[in-house]
Write a protein that binds this DNA or RNA. Structure first.
Lengths: 200, 200
DNA sequence: TAGTTTTTTGACGTCAGCGTCAAATAACTA
DNA sequence: TAGTTATTTGACGCTGACGTCAAAAAACTA
């Protein structure tokens, strides 16, 4: 009858372009035109799929956090021992370096929360997944005897996620006093302190 | 001879206006006009004192971080015991709640780093003061016997600051899963774990 | 090829920001 | 009051973002 509907594919492509462009130049000065150019389209085409830039950014936010969490969970799932899993979770949770633009963007999104309930929800979902990842590793370690965490598990998990967030933020914010190596070691040290034997 | 030079006072007033306006509406959409209005002047007057909005924001960033650190240090200095000091430092380091606009702004400034070396430097200076505050308390506590911190002091301090940053960020970013009370308790729990007796 | 639906363009009008600058005003002193 | 310097205004031209929309182009099928 007619031309087939390919909205879903285009939408993903545009979300991808938004992620790339926002990673490159940051959210502060990002415009519809920038994203359209990156996608090789015009502003008009973009508006055919999204009401405005905010609507697109919500999708980009969602895609970015999901990608991050999915990737880490899949890396962790491939490992056997709780100690290995913990080390992998920490490594995958930290940015690769000061130039990890995607990770930087994820934290920049945090500041869109408070302006939009949708971003609010996404920030919370991200947090829940972060805590779920560490909590599962802690519980498995305790159950198998690999770990002997005596502290409150909720609090231990919270603190672990907090360390991850803070160090990631410092690294992508260009604070050269905090390196990826230092962050990883500090997180491992904390884990040891609460009863994880990770050196095995 | 002529009209006296009052640049210093005006500059402070404008920095103040910038802090207020940026706290209110965030950095993302802040314009020269907004700040000028808040200060009761026109854009032209503002440009008489600062080259552009960025120059003004650098000063606002500097003023904001200094105010935060100065205030906390003065609160801590008034207390006697390391345990009291630690509790006060934690309390003063966290936002008062999700609506603590100034604290929110301080974290938003982190994302101006990487775009400007000046902001970079300010972020680092803030970090150095945060660590100095906690390190002094830890050292005093260890010296007086109030604390028995066996872990590496550098790492313990780093982690303490990291917890403060992460929880503050979550609170001001509107993550309702993290409350000020939870953050304070989690930080105190961490301090206990590394050897601070704060319950005295 | 003609018909149908989806996708994309590009132009239009509007609005708000920016930096410049000559002129006006204010706050002094002699 | 006249002179001098400091401060402030407000208009100008430029740029770039936004949302709308009619028309064009593309991708199909019968």
């Amino acid at each position: 009858m007619a031309r087939p509907n390919t909205q879903e594919r285009r939408r993903s492509e545009l979300v991808e372009a938004a992620l790339k462009e926002a990673s490159t130049q940051g959210l502060r000065s990002l415009s519809l035109t920038d994203v359209a150019k990156r996608a090789g389209l015009t502003r008009g085409a973009l508006l055919y799929y999204f009401d405005d830039l905010d609507a697109l950014l919500v999708e980009a936010h969602r895609a970015g956090t999901e990608r991050f969490c999915d990737h880490r969970d899949s890396v962790v799932a491939e490992l056997e021992s709780p100690a290995e899993k913990l080390r992998a979770a920490i490594a995958a949770g930290l940015p690769s370096g000061p130039d990890d633009a995607l990770m930087r963007l994820l934290y920049e999104f945090d500041f869109m929360a408070g302006q939009s309930d949708l971003h609010d929800t996404l920030v919370q979902q991200m947090y829940l997944r972060q805590t779920a990842t560490y909590r599962a590793i802690f519980e498995e370690g305790n159950a198998s005897g690999a770990f002997t965490i005596s502290a409150d598990l909720d609090q231990a998990t919270m603190n672990m996620v907090a360390l991850e967030d803070a160090y990631s933020l410092h690294i992508v914010a260009g604070n050269r006093l905090v390196t990826v190596d230092m962050a990883r070691e500090a997180m491992l040290a904390f884990a040891e302190q609460i009863g994880c034997r990770t050196s095995a």
